[in-house]
Amino acid sequence: MNATAAQRHEVLVLGAGYAGLSAAIQLAARTRKRVDLRVTLVNPHDTFTERLRLHMTATGQETAAMSIPELLDGTGAAFVRGWVTAVDAEAKTVRIDDDRVLHYDTLVYGLGSVADTVTVPGVDEHAHTLDGPQDAALLADRLTRLDDGGSVVVAGSGLTGVEAAAEIAERHPRLRVLLLGRQEPGATMHPKAKAYLDAALARLGVAVRSGVDVSKVLPDGVELADGSGVPAAAVLWTSGTRVPPLAAAAGLTVDERGRVVTDGALRSVSHPDVYAVGDAAAIRQGYGVMHGTCQGGMPTGVHAALSILRVLAGKEPRPFRFGYYHTPVSLGRGDAVVQFTHPDDSPRRVVLTGRRAAKYKETVSAAPWATFARMKRMPASGALWPHGGRHTRTRSAK
C-alpha cells in the first residue's frame, strides 16, 4: 500500500519515560510494515532515565545508559530530540525548543512529573532533587564534598525519600542523615513490613522525624512549620510532585494537579484524539485515581497503543483496568522490603525482606528492558490492524 505524507496518519508520543516509551514501541512494532501510519517519539534527551535507580546515581553508583534510538531500532518509530514548549490541541501541533512545529493526528501525552520545587519557598534555589541523572549527579558530587559529620536532610518520607535516605546512609556512613516527613516511613505498609523498614533505617543510622512540615528551605538547612529550624549541609527534596502546565495551557481538561483527565480508554475527556499516560494522566479506577509509578505507567502506555489501533480499525477502544501488585523498597544495596498488595494498593499480609527482597527488587528494576524487548518482537500489523489488540487485566512491575 502506498501513502502520501498527506494521507499518512501521524502519531506523536511526547515523553520517553516508562509510559511514553511503552506506547511508542508497542504501537510502532505492531505497525512497522505499514506506510500509512508513522510513530514519532519526542524527548529532550536521547538516553532513557531509569527513575527506579536515581537514588543509586545520587550516591555515585554507575547505572546502565540506555539509548532511546537503540531501544526504538527495528520498530520503525522516529525519534525527535527536543523540549516540548507548547501544544496546540485545536491545530494539532506541538512546538519544540528549536522552534520546529510537529503535526499530529493522534497525540500520546506522557510528559510525566517532576519534584514540586514551587510550593515551598527556597526549594528551587537550595534543595537537590531526583528528577533526572543530571540532578542526581549533582547531589552525588555534593555528598562527596561534605565534611565528616555533615548533616543531610531528606525532606519527604515517601518511598523515594526512604530509598534515598537509606542509600546515602549506606554509601556515606560518615554523614548524618535525617528523614523528615508528615507521615512515618512505610505508614501504608503492613505492620510487619513497616517494622522491618524502621529497623533497617535505624541500623543504617538514619534519624527519622515524622509529623512535621517543611515551610522553607534555607542555604544552611530547613525551617519547619512550627518555626523551628533544622541545620543541614545538603537538602534532598522528595516531597510532592507537579506536572508541566502544557496540558492546561493547551486547553485540555485537567485535574487540580494539572494532570490530563481521561476517559476509560485513556483518552482526554475534552480532546479524544489525545491519549494521556503515566504520571501526566488522572486515570480513575474503581479504587480511585492511580498514583504515578512504573508499575502503572508501562501498562497505560501499552493500553494507549492498543486503543489507537482499535480506533484506527473502526472499533471502540476497551476500558483500561489496572490492579497494583506490590511495593518494592530498596534499603541499600543488599537489603529491601517488598510489600505485596491488593489491587487497590492496600497492603496484604505477604511481605518479603532481606536479601531475597533485594534480589526481587533488582529483578523488578531490570524488568522494563525485557518488556521493551518483547514489545519490539511483536508481530507487525497484518491481522492485528483490523482486529486491534487483545485486552488483558494489567498487572505489572513497579
Rank of each mutant, 00 (worst) to 15 (best):
K194G: 13
S228I: 12
T188L: 01
S270D: 12
G354P: 11
P245R: 04
V338E: 14
A6Y: 07
R356C: 07
P386Y: 02
K194N: 07
A78M: 02
M1D: 05
V277K: 08
A140P: 01
G323H: 06
P319T: 06
T262Y: 12
A367M: 14
A281D: 11
Y275K: 06
V260D: 04
G60A: 08
A202N: 13
G314N: 09
T371G: 01
R145H: 15
Q183P: 00
V269D: 11
T327D: 08
A265I: 11
A233E: 07
S157F: 13
V351L: 00
L309E: 12
R8F: 10
F322T: 12
V329Q: 12
A200K: 08
R142C: 00
V94Y: 12
D141G: 15
P219T: 11
L224W: 03
A155H: 06
L146C: 02
A58E: 12
R349M: 03
V261Y: 01
L107S: 15
G314S: 09
D335F: 10
A234I: 01
A383N: 10
A77D: 00
L139A: 07
H391R: 11
R145P: 01
E70A: 14
D97Q: 12
K92Q: 15
P219R: 06
G186H: 07
A200H: 10
G186E: 00
L309N: 02
A65E: 07
T144N: 04
R30Q: 11
T160D: 03
D105E: 06
